[in-house]
């Protein structure tokens, strides 16, 4: 049967065009991402030996994983520490960036200047700067000097709250939180940006209608702002996990790199990275599973 060749319909042509637009990424994903990812999985079960001409893989089975988890002196400890730190800082970063975005969204003089300033950490806190900061002895010295006279978090504060019968765990968390505040503020740049974009996209009429109906500011926040922002809270949670997970000054990232270059070798460092990746993947899945059903999507 011979079919007459007709020009492609508009919708088919559009579909093809859309696909063509994304082809470069698809090619890159397969060759420069999926292939190395697969190879990383393979290497984690091998020992990698580099020779001048090429490289060899010697099979090791689960040995690398066993070594990382049971034998390596620091991996398990650092791994737990990093997870605990993330769990402490995550709610604070989300809370602070939401709060900061709310302030930046209100109208006041010098707003543009303040916004520019708030996003500065995005520019300053990356890669090489973070890495060098870890090795900065003068800064460490200044910090030690400052710890002699803490403005908050001293024993007096702790005993005061203990006397007032606050649970010790809560007092510790609050004090730790206040001491971590600088880190939190500096890690919140992109998150503030995302929340701010969201706040700006809530139509003004919704608030006006609510006011006419007699809603208070408190009600407007919990019944309009919060549900409208909930998808972004999810986005920001995920971004924050990824960002702290891949930061150059993340202790586990440093450890993995050290292991690769000077320690137990490529195989073990790949196994460590895999364990870390799977753990973070599970955390992200849990966060997503718990929250995505509660998230409100504005249509």
């Amino acid at each position: 049967m011979k079919r007459k060749r007709r020009p492609m319909s508009f919708s088919r042509r559009q579909k093809l065009a859309g696909f063509l637009f994304t082809v470069p990424f698809l090619v890159g994903f397969i060759f420069l991402f999926a292939v190395p990812f697969y190879q990383a999985v393979v290497i984690s079960f091998h020992e990698l030996v580099l020779t001048p001409q090429t490289f060899e893989l010697q099979p090791k089975g689960w040995e690398n994983y066993g070594y990382a988890l049971q034998v390596h002196p620091e991996f398990s400890k650092t791994f737990t520490e990093v997870l605990v730190k993330l769990a402490t800082e995550l709610p604070m970063i989300i809370g602070f960036s939401f709060f900061a975005a709310t302030i930046l969204n209100s109208d006041f003089r010098g707003r543009t200047f303040v916004r520019t300033l708030f996003f500065l950490p995005v520019i300053l806190g990356a890669g090489v700067v973070m890495k060098m900061e870890v090795q900065d002895y003068a800064q460490i010295m200044v910090k030690h000097l400052a710890e002699g006279a803490p403005f908050f978090g001293g024993a007096a504060v702790r005993s005061f709250f203990a006397a007032a019968r606050f649970p010790a765990g809560m007092v510790d968390y609050v004090i730790d939180a206040i001491q971590a505040l600088p880190t939190v503020i500096r890690a919140s740049g992109v998150q503030i940006l995302i929340f701010l974009a969201g706040l700006q996209s809530i139509p003004r009429e919704v608030y006006e209608a609510a006011s006419v109906e007699g809603a208070t500011g408190w009600e407007r926040f919990w019944l309009i702002t919060f549900p409208m922002m909930s998808p972004l809270i999810l986005v920001n949670l995920i971004y924050t996990v990824i960002d702290s997970f891949t930061a150059m000054n993340n202790e586990l990232v440093v450890l993995i790199r050290e292991t690769m270059l000077r320690g137990a070798g490529y195989g073990v460092s790949m196994a460590m990275a895999m364990i870390y990746f799977v753990a973070i993947g599970l955390i992200l899945l849990a966060v997503f599973g718990l929250l995505s059903r509660r998230v409100f999507y504005h249509v």
Binding site: G18, F29, Q39, I43, I242, M260, F277
Partner: peptide
């Protein structure tokens, strides 16, 4: 453009963000 697989491609783009670059650095 809505075409079959466009959602998946978007998901893959987000997935590349979730993999720490250190992980695929050696094979790359």
């Amino acid at each position: 453009f809505k075409f079959p697989g466009s959602q998946i491609i978007f998901g893959l783009a987000i997935f590349t963000l979730m993999i720490p670059p250190q992980l695929i650095m050696t094979p790359s």
